[in-house]
C-alpha cells in the first residue's frame, strides 16, 4: 500500500552513513586477514531444499531460476575449485519473513576459513564484531565498551533453563514443557520434536542471554545439523554454532560437511520431508554436489551473519527497517 510518504527511506540518512562506514569496516577486517571478497550469482537453477526456507521463483527465457537464500553453495564450489579463504557481502531473499528482525530481502555476510574449527570461526566472528564497535555512533549508550564471548552447549543452555535434556527428551515431555511455558496448547496438536525445540529455545532459553555479551551456542542436536558435520566423539550433536549478541541471533556457522554422498542424502531427506508436508520439492544443486565429488571441498568452517541485525545492535535500532534504505513495504 502506497501512502504519500512511501518514497521516503525507512532509515535516517544518519543511519545510512553509519551503515556505509560499518560495511567498509567489515571489508577492511577481511582485507587485513587476507580473506578474498567474491561475488556469486543471486539467481540459480537450484533452490535450497531446507524445509523451513522458501525461495522466490523467477521465470526466465531459459526456464525457472531461484533467488538465493544464502550464497553458501556457489561459495563452496569456489572452495572446491581452490579459491581459499573467501567472504561475500550480498543481498539474499527469504519470502514471507517480515517483522521486527526480518525483511524478505536482507544483507548477509558469509565467509569460509580453511582448516578452521567451528570454535576458531566463532572466535573470529567475535573479533569482527569487536572491531566494528568503534564505528558505531558515539551516542549509542546501549553499546558496551567490550563484548565478552561466552560459549555454551545447546543442551546445557536448554537444561539450565528448562531442566530437561533436549537430546534425550521425548515429544511428550517437550509438549508438557511448551504447555507449562504458555507457548503451545494441547488443542493445537503435537509439534514435531525439532519444531518444539525451536520454539522452546527461542522463547524460553535465548530470551535470557545476557544483554552485553556474545553468546555462542555450540553442539546443536544432530537432527538440526543442516550442512554441518556431526561431532566425532559425540554424534548426537553437530559441529554447528550460533552466535547471539544479547538475545538477538546474529550468525550461524558450521564445520562444513564435505562428503558428497552424505550431502546428497541430506538434500534427498529434505525433499522427502517437504513432500510429506505438502511443500514443493526443490531442484537440488547438482553443480555443488559435483564439486564435492570431483573437486573435493577443503576441510573448512563457514558462517553466515545477518548484517542488518548487526547494524541494529551497533546503531541501537529497534526495528530492522531503521537500518535499511527501503524496507519491503517501500521497495
Amino acid at each position: 500500500m502506497f501512502t504519500s510518504d512511501s518514497w521516503q527511506p525507512s532509515a535516517s540518512i544518519e543511519a545510512l552513513r553509519h551503515r556505509a562506514r560499518i560495511l567498509q569496516g567489515i571489508r577492511a577486517f577481511f582485507d587485513e586477514r587476507g580473506v578474498l571478497e567474491v561475488n556469486t550469482p543471486s539467481l540459480s537453477r537450484a533452490a535450497t531444499t531446507d524445509v523451513h526456507l522458501d525461495s522466490y521463483r523467477v521465470e526466465t527465457d531459459s526456464g525457472p531460476r531461484y533467488l538465493h537464500t544464502s550464497p553458501e553453495l556457489p561459495m563452496k564450489r569456489l572452495l572446491a575449485a581452490g579459491v581459499g579463504d573467501c567472504y561475500q557481502l550480498c543481498a539474499v531473499f527469504r519470502p514471507s519473513e517480515q517483522g521486527r528482525y526480518h525483511n524478505p530481502e536482507f544483507t548477509l555476510l558469509e565467509w569460509y576459513r580453511t582448516a578452521y574449527s567451528i570454535d576458531d570461526l566463532i572466535v573470529e566472528t567475535a573479533a569482527l564484531i569487536r572491531a566494528l564497535l568503534p564505528l558505531a555512533p558515539a551516542d549509542n549508550s546501549a553499546l558496551p565498551a567490550d563484548l565478552p564471548l561466552v560459549s555454551v552447549r545447546y543442551s546445557d543452555a536448554f537444561k539450565a533453563r528448562l531442566g530437561l535434556c533436549p537430546l534425550a527428551a521425548t515429544e511428550h515431555e517437550l509438549q508438557t514443557l511448551l504447555h507449562d511455558n504458555g507457548l503451545w496448547s494441547k488443542e493445537q496438536g503435537i509439534l514435531p520434536k525439532d519444531s518444539a525445540l525451536d520454539l522452546l529455545f527461542s522463547q524460553a532459553v535465548s530470551r535470557h542471554f545476557p544483554e552485553r555479551q556474545l553468546t555462542a551456542v555450540t553442539h546443536y542436536p544432530a537432527s538440526q545439523a543442516a550442512l554441518a558435520q556431526l561431532t566425532p566423539d559425540d554424534p548426537a550433536t553437530a559441529q554447528r554454532s550460533e552466535l547471539y549478541w544479547g538475545q538477538v541471533e546474529l550468525a550461524n556457522g558450521f564445520k562444513e560437511l564435505t562428503d558428497a554422498d552424505e550431502q546428497r542424502a541430506r538434500f534427498e531427506a529434505d525433499n522427502r520431508e517437504r513432500k510429506a508436508k505438502g511443500l514443493i520439492e526443490q531442484p537440488m544443486d547438482e553443480c555443488f554436489l559435483q564439486a564435492l565429488k570431483q573437486g573435493g571441498m577443503p576441510d573448512c568452517s563457514g558462517i553466515a551473519l545477518g548484517v542488518d541485525r548487526l547494524m541494529m545492535k551497533l546503531l541501537d535500532a529497534d526495528q530492522i527497517q531503521a537500518v535499511m534504505a527501503f524496507d519491503a513495504s517501500r521497495a
Binding site: 520454539l199 529455545f201 538440526q224 541471533e249 550461524n252
Partner: peptide, 24 residues
C-alpha cells in the same frame, strides 16, 4: 480463537536461521 473473536495487538515473527518459523 476457540469460538471467540480476538483482536491482534502485537505480532512477532520468530524464525531461527535454521528451523521452524512461528508467529507469537
Amino acid at each position: 480463537i476457540d469460538g471467540d473473536p480476538y483482536n491482534i495487538v502485537e505480532n512477532e515473527l520468530v524464525k531461527p536461521g535454521k528451523g521452524q518459523a512461528f508467529n507469537r
